[in-house]
């Protein structure tokens, strides 16, 4: 289903040439498994928010990716979102994992939606909004997804700061003093 399949190294080189300063770092990790030690390559890329959508467009042009999930970290001053894509599926041992990480400052944690490019991103984008308190701009559906409607407004379970969960912490087996 692909026109020409690029190796992970070629992908990284191409993206670095095209977006140069917008790509903060790019590593290729390979992990072998089994007796034959076949390898699965993964590209871990840290990119600047500005070029994010262009890079997603590049991947879609290359080969429609599968967006597995967006995961997130609270890094103190920044919130990191990691988009886990895979491309080249459908060829025996040819799949490449592509983990694109974007850091958003906590003062303005906003990022453009990619639902217009990949409609399947909706559920995971909604989840990131309620669990990490990031703002996804132009998201087609802004409601809550997992948390109940009566859940406090300004609490985001995956945060590690004052907006985290300490207030709601409950331990069934706590020994009362």
């Amino acid at each position: 289903m692909t026109k020409d399949q690029k190796t992970p190294e070629e992908h990284v080189k191409y993206l670095k040439d095209k977006f140069n300063t917008n790509i903060i770092s790019a590593d290729i990790k390979k992990r072998a498994a089994g007796s034959k030690k076949n390898e699965t390559p993964s590209i871990w890329m840290k990119i600047d928010k500005g070029a994010f959508k262009e890079i997603v467009k590049y991947i879609i042009e290359y080969n429609y990716p599968h967006l597995a999930i967006i995961s997130g970290n609270d890094l103190g001053n920044n919130i990191e979102l990691i988009y886990h894509f895979t491309v080249n599926y459908g060829t025996r041992l040819g799949e490449i994992n592509l983990h694109i990480s974007v850091e958003l400052p906590k003062s303005k944690p906003e990022i453009e939606t990619i639902c217009d490019l990949i409609p399947g991103a909706l559920i995971t984008e909604r989840e990131k909004q309620e669990f990490l308190g990031v703002k996804i701009k132009n998201i087609p559906d802004n409601r809550r997804l997992f948390l109940p409607d009566d859940f406090p407004k300004d609490v985001y379970p995956w945060r590690r700061d004052e907006k985290g969960l300490e207030k709601l912490y409950k331990n069934l087996h706590e020994v009362k003093k």
Binding site: A33, T40, R92, L93
Partner: peptide, 13 residues
Amino acid sequence: DLRADTSYFAYGD
């Protein structure tokens, strides 16, 4: 199908 796409566990063999 991840089992064919990637090499993990012994699926690569």
